Simulated assay, not measured.
Amino acid sequence: MGFLSNRRKRTRLAPELDDQELGRLLKSLLATTRTGTIATTDLCMAQMSRLLDQDPGDWDRRTHRISVLADFLAASHLPRSWAAREPRNATALVLHAWSQVAQARAQDRPGDTSDAAESCLRAAELAPDDPTPWVALLKVARRERWKQPHVFGVWNEVLARDRWNREAYMNMLGYLAPEEAGSRMQVLDFVDALGARMPANAPCVATELTAQVFQYHAILGRGGYEALVARTHWSQGTAAQALDRAAHTWGQPGFLRHAKSLADLNLLAHALMAADRRVEARTAFEAVGGIVTAWPWQSAGDPLTEFEQAQRRATVGL
């Protein structure tokens, strides 16, 4: 227990990852929203606007920040209030729509997201070059189980504006899974088509490994003999190749530069430990630097505990 107590001081769940400005905003929002006054609402809106309007054209960073804020504010009145006060502000409309979907997911209910879809389309008209309204609409489409032709139409709008948008690829991966609206074959075709064109350090580089982790978790979920030999998944075919490629390159200093790089390194550490490749996992843990993502660690229990125990196993024998 002493190891875990000391490790817990150095590890933390941080949805903002290494985005320090976003982290400061989250702390400020948490502090100022407690008063619930109109003045603090105005202050929060100004703070969010200032951060989200930074670095025009950096769609990767903008998507990351909106996604984190939407999850953080899913139960708050702030996104709706901001969109109501500034109905011609594309950023406010996107955050409102995204947070509606996040709230429906958090409450595990279908929810009425028709207003969210309308907000996305208005935002797309106001900011025609911005991919985030279409990424948000892709999330709405998943939630409402739109038919594939309509979903692919939204998907193409994202790609026309941001070819390697990580959030869009992850949403399509989820949508095409057999648990939603697709099949295992569609997932494989999607990943294969991506790998043929994608730069090795693109923001969406973790799509292939994510698909393999999903499949690994599905095997574990079936229980019985399959679960007992689930580790063999990582020594066979496409799973082994995907893990080899990631292990060879991702941990190199400066190789991954996109906003969610640390999330991808968490994924890599998890997969390497599942494959019992501990030496390589140590490199991934070092690159993570103690910043923990809820997924994929939460699949087996408390994410911090699972991360810490995996990190300890990776260092046994040093």
Rank of each mutant, 00 (worst) to 15 (best):
R10H: 13
P15L: 12
P15H: 14
L17C: 10
L17T: 09
L29D: 05
L30S: 14
T37A: 13
D42N: 11
C44I: 04
M45V: 12
R50L: 09
L51H: 08
L51F: 09
L52I: 11
G57R: 09
W59P: 00
R61Y: 05
R65H: 08
A83D: 14
A84P: 08
A84N: 15
E86H: 13
A104M: 01
A106S: 02
G111C: 09
E118D: 09
E125G: 06
W134E: 03
L137A: 11
A141I: 07
W155N: 08
Y169M: 10
Y169V: 05
N171C: 11
G174V: 05
A177M: 08
A177S: 15
L188R: 14
D192V: 11
D192P: 06
L194Y: 05
R197Q: 14
P199E: 04
T207P: 06
L220W: 00
A227I: 01
S235L: 10
R245C: 13
P253T: 13
G254Q: 15
L256Y: 01
A259I: 10
A263C: 01
H270G: 01
H270V: 03
R277T: 01
E280A: 13
E280Q: 04
E280H: 00
A287S: 07
A294H: 01
P296A: 05
A300N: 05
D302P: 02
Q309R: 12
G317H: 07
G317I: 08
